[in-house]
Design a protein around this nucleic acid. Structure first.
Lengths: 223, 223, 223, 223
DNA sequence: GATGAATGAGTGTTCATTCAT
DNA sequence: GATGAATGAACACTCATTCAT
């Protein structure tokens, strides 16, 4: 997760034509923010356009000035969340000086984002039937970041010889379920809006570090 | 995943009153099978009761003879899938003689089940908004199996000292996303109904094994 | 209401073929009693055949052995109630020695029946759209009793010269709404299962007696 | 019935938020008119929203723009009819110069309204199970008018000493059943849309007048 | 005589979307 | 640019009735 590389062609996102006027841009942004919130709390199917426009403080008809329909809005929300989570992770790890530090920073950022945007995974998981393309694009784009990170780390001998694609999906899965269990569920239970508890974070880091670290013998040999 | 322990109280499932007559039991089973299939292909919201009863070959009204409503049907389907996947994993790993063998057998069974029942995760992931209880019960019951497996393995010194709960959620997540990526997506792409490709399976096993294995020094010490 | 005359051709009721066996007759009676109760508490439309058969302690299918359908059952219930209320009123007033006594006894019996069978008017009033024939037959048969009573009382000079038909409908209406207000509503409010309170009864009797009594001058003239 | 007093707080009716636009108000009014007609001819349960919207000439969904549901529509219809019948009676009797004249005018207006709005009582009588509150509010509000009329008439010595509440319910009942018998039933038989025939009206008036008039002795005393 | 599994027509209600203003 | 009245397809669910046992 430290390995996210933002300097690559964006995964295809919805084509967006931004409204020409300032007022229009504000309206569009309000709608998107409202949508994220409503999708997150109600789910795609119970998120009616009326709810969203009410939350956004605009008229019902206004919605269709800015979005062709509900699904396109959904795709846009997923796409935006995806861009932002990748950016958060990338920024967090860019300041790191060691590989380990970068890894920790990336995961921390991921959990923090999950905490701040409960929408992320509740929305993405629903996407299976709403917009499979959006769902795949989301997972693929993040995993791609891991992969390229692992590849370059392997080139430097900092990560052992393991299929980087498989390892990346495994990392993604571990992060997702840990986030679901300790961020989402705890939040819904009424509580702490910060990321995962420290001992969980440390255990996960230990799990990952051990799984990826060059073996002692190899290390010794490479010395 | 090898550690699934079926000899524990079932997580609470929907109370089921089986129909008294053979005919009734057949009808109920048909409805459940149809529901699994329709939920898996259409998703909860697009799975109309009409679709399900048509697929089951019964009249619309018949559905309500056996289930109080759509949500209860969903819960039952999730519960059944959960029971079956845990049983499959448990059975597979019970024949193993070494810990490693058991682990491999458990994961193989999991991917095989995923391949045979694409319903499993497409259904469970939707459950977030349809039936959060069912979703949590599903994940929790499987993770509980892992945890108790890890605990007993740690007692024998076969697994290193790592928080078994965190490790279990990480394993669960890795398995789920690998299954999604290489079983579900590949299947939807038109293809192979078997589990994950061999090289993926081996890479994943290597990932897990390394993450859990007792460290060399500890091993030496324990000698 | 004292004037009910039971010795006249019954208003047409549903043709009834009683079941040949004792057991069958008991089942049929159970169904009728259950129907009266369920119709009274739930109303015609919410009174499902299932509810009725359950209350009667018989199987669903059994219902259709004894009745062609729900509407016919309803008609039978109305018809039975009608026969019984007329009988109760007739019996009560038959023991009276003066006209006034008979009138009081008849009304008392009517209110007592209403109290014991809340079904009567809640059912009859619904009949407007369920079975207009049954509704009309009910009102007409009771009013006919009044009319003939008034006619013979007029012949004896005990009741003044007023159109007996109009007067009968007016009496019927007064009795019905008083019963609704002081028997039904009070019962639903949680309370007293006896008939109307004494002061209400006396006020009503005074109202009726004054309306019907021969005028003083006429009386004097006739002396 | 002459005593209806419209200058009193309305019985609580459904809160109504009138549509802001002219078009909306027209649509709402169309729906109410259609509902009155369909409820009157089909009864509450057979009056489907589709029937009503078709009669109103609007789309099905439009109904739910103006009413939360079928029951609320029903309540509104009952409330409107109630308001209108009380107003009609009140207006009719307000022009009268003597008590008797007022009484006759009030009843005439009542029967005329019944003739013009067959909906009134067929609808109200069903309300027993559909909306007991609405039913009670209807009867109570009319009876309250009678009561206060009787009270002031008694104060002037124009009506004898009889419990005004009981007398009012008796009057209400007499009027209702006479209206049912001679307006509704005759209409359904195919006929005359005017109120009750003259001889019936006169007989009823005589009935009521005699029941309420101060006794001769009292009169003499008061001279 | 008695049963209850099976049925499908019919209902109230929701909501994404359109379009005239 | 912004609005909200109007729409109808679609859906979950009910229940009187049938009929094989």
């Amino acid at each position: 997760m430290n390995h996210v590389d933002i300097n690559r062609p964006e995964p295809l996102g919805p084509e967006v034509i931004l409204p020409p006027t300032k007022r229009g841009q504000r309206t569009r942004a309000n709608l998107l923010a409202a949508a994220e919130s409503v999708f997150a709390t109600s789910g795609y199917h119970d998120a009616s356009i009326v709810k969203i426009t009410e939350e956004a403080g605009v008229g019902l008809g206004t919605f269709y000035v800015y979005f062709p329909g509900k699904k396109e809005l959904f795709d846009q929300v997923v796409f935006d969340l995806n861009r932002r989570v990748r950016q958060a992770m990338s920024e967090a790890s860019s300041g790191a000086t060691t590989r380990l530090e970068a890894e920790r920073a990336g995961f921390r950022a991921f959990f923090a984002f999950t905490a701040a945007h409960p929408a992320l995974y509740s929305i993405v998981r629903q996407a299976e039937f709403v917009s499979p393309e959006a769902m795949r694009a989301h997972y693929t784009s993040i995993v791609d970041g891991y992969i390229s990170g692992l590849l370059s780390a392997q080139a430097k001998g900092e990560v052992r010889d393991i299929d980087p694609t498989v390892a990346s999906w495994a990392l993604m899965g571990a992060g997702e379920l840990i986030g679901m269990r300790w961020v989402q569920w705890e939040q819904q239970a009424g509580g702490r809006p910060e990321g995962v508890p420290d001992h969980v974070f440390e255990a996960l880091m230990s799990f990952i570090e051990t799984a990826l670290a060059p073996s002692a013998s190899v290390k010794e040999e490479s010395v």
